[in-house]
């Protein structure tokens, strides 16, 4: 199914999302710690490579409450530009379709 929890497919949308999180949206402050593993390349893309990385994300609230917030896999497209590697796109696929409370900061 095509629906995403969050969808930004151009630079302007990314800006809007960041600005909304910083200035408009209200949520209990928290931060994420990502644990990454199993990175591997899975093939070529028109301008670079496609790669996958598994992740777990721990969410910590300011009072110290910690939750294993999400687990899943990143599907990345990485291109090389002037000798540097850059992400062209990142699709985050969560293992669960249920989210605890809200997702403010993108995973």
């Amino acid at each position: 199914m095509p629906l995403s929890i969050m969808l930004c497919d151009n630079r302007a949308m990314l800006y809007d999302r960041v600005e909304a999180i910083e200035k408009a949206n209200v949520f209990e402050p928290h931060y994420y710690r990502h644990i990454l593993s199993d990175s591997r390349t899975v093939g070529d893309s028109p301008d670079g490579i496609r790669a996958e990385t598994s992740f777990m994300c721990v969410r910590t609230m300011l009072d110290g409450r910690m939750t294993l917030f999400a687990a899943g896999v990143f599907h990345d497209e990485i291109v090389s530009e002037n000798g540097a590697c850059r992400f062209r796109s990142r699709t985050v696929v969560l293992d669960a379709s249920q989210v605890d409370t809200l997702i403010a900061i993108p995973l």
Binding site: L7, A24, T101, L102, A104
Partner: peptide, 23 residues
């Protein structure tokens, strides 16, 4: 699909509704 950014757990409009009851 793009307007769906307004709804759901990450909804630009809806996200506060998910937490306000808890508060």
């Amino acid at each position: 699909l793009k307007q769906a950014n307004m709804m759901g757990p990450a909804g630009l409009i809806a996200m506060e509704d998910g937490m306000i009851g808890g508060l």
